[in-house]
């Protein structure tokens, strides 16, 4: 990249294979196939794609909930993809936290809000009750709840409020990075906007670095600085969000963008939808594709001749 922003997370050539044995032999699913990208400090990096494209798996591999098959993950310059040790687990837990999709299932129904939020702090070694209370109070106010809510249980809250609790739990430990996996897709439109605004405010206020995983492209576009598009385990395009939406180059990205239903009846009814057929779109028998930079900061998974065509298309 052109500038000297600090790289917070560096994912290099990450592969994640799942094997399953059956009578017919072992079958291998390549959930992530040689994916590389960088996340800069204080930016929001969006990951989009259809279900099953590997976006959630990528998030989980970074959290080390899986052991990557090969490749490297570096957080603040430290390799976190190696053998799991107690020390490494603590390092990851202190630096990365997560906001999950389902606000019902990701909160323990038997813990009060105070316990849920302070658990991360207790693990960190803060046990002084006064300090904990102070922190819980501050964080609840930040996410738009009050101290009165602290002694209640998750079932007493609405979906939007639960997601606020989930967000409070994630940011109370002052993480370096937050992985938000479909944080708003389970919420109603009106509540969705509240949570998106909250995440946006917190991001600005705390300078959070966020990996935002979602399938709703308009939400991702709204929220992210840079976006990576995944297709069947591969990262096919990576660019700044405006650049990606205005000049999509990879045929899959074009298909994906053309499929978003726009809330505008004037154009929506006559809109053409582009379909994507990887076999017809690419001929990789002669040249093999790699991630190629088409114009500054805009990468496409393409073979050299395709890259040439993309450059022409982009007017470079």
């Amino acid at each position: 990249m052109q500038d000297n922003r600090e790289v917070l997370l560096n994912v290099e050539d990450l592969c994640m294979e799942f094997r399953s044995k059956s009578r017919r032999g072992t079958s291998v699913v390549k959930a992530i196939d040689h994916v590389s990208f960088q996340v800069y400090k204080s930016e929001t990096f969006g990951l989009v794609g259809e279900s099953g494209c590997g976006k959630t798996t990528t998030g989980r591999a970074i959290l080390r909930l899986y052991n990557p098959t090969s490749g490297k993950i570096e957080l603040k310059g430290r390799d976190i993809s190696g053998k799991m040790t107690t020390e490494l687990r603590q390092y990851i837990a202190q630096n990365i936290s997560t906001v999950f999709q389902d606000p019902v299932e990701s909160l323990n129904p038997r813990m009060t809000v105070r316990e849920i939020i302070s658990e991360g702090l207790v693990v960190k070694g803060i046990t002084d009750k006064a300090v904990l209370d102070e922190k819980v109070k501050n964080i609840l106010e930040k996410v738009g709840l009050t101290m009165e809510h602290a002694n209640r249980y998750p079932h007493e809250f609405s979906g939007g409020q639960r997601q606020r609790i989930g967000i409070a739990r994630a940011i109370v430990v002052n993480p370096t990075m937050v992985i938000a996996d479909e944080p708003v897709s389970a919420l109603d439109v009106s509540i969705q906007a509240q949570v998106i605004n909250l995440l946006n405010d917190l991001k600005d206020e705390l300078g959070l670095t966020v990996i935002f995983i979602a399938h709703d492209l308009s939400v991702v576009k709204y929220f992210s600085d840079r976006i990576g598009v995944m297709y069947f385990g591969k990262l096919v395009e990576l660019a700044e969000s405006d650049e990606l939406y205005q000049h999509p180059l990879h045929p899959y990205t074009k298909a994906l963008l053309s499929a978003i239903p726009l809330p505008n009846p004037l154009i929506e009814k006559g809109r053409k939808i582009i379909s994507y057929d990887p076999k017809a779109a690419h001929d990789y028998s002669v040249e093999s594709p790699t991630m190629t930079e088409i114009c500054p900061g805009h990468f496409v998974y393409a073979s050299p001749s395709e890259a040439e065509a993309y450059r022409k298309e982009r007017g470079m």
Partner: peptide
């Protein structure tokens, strides 16, 4: 309110949530 709370592709203005 419903129309304003939808994020759209054109702008990054703060959403008007209900």
């Amino acid at each position: 309110a419903l129309l304003s709370s939808m994020p759209d592709l054109e702008s990054k203005d703060r959403l008007l949530s209900i």
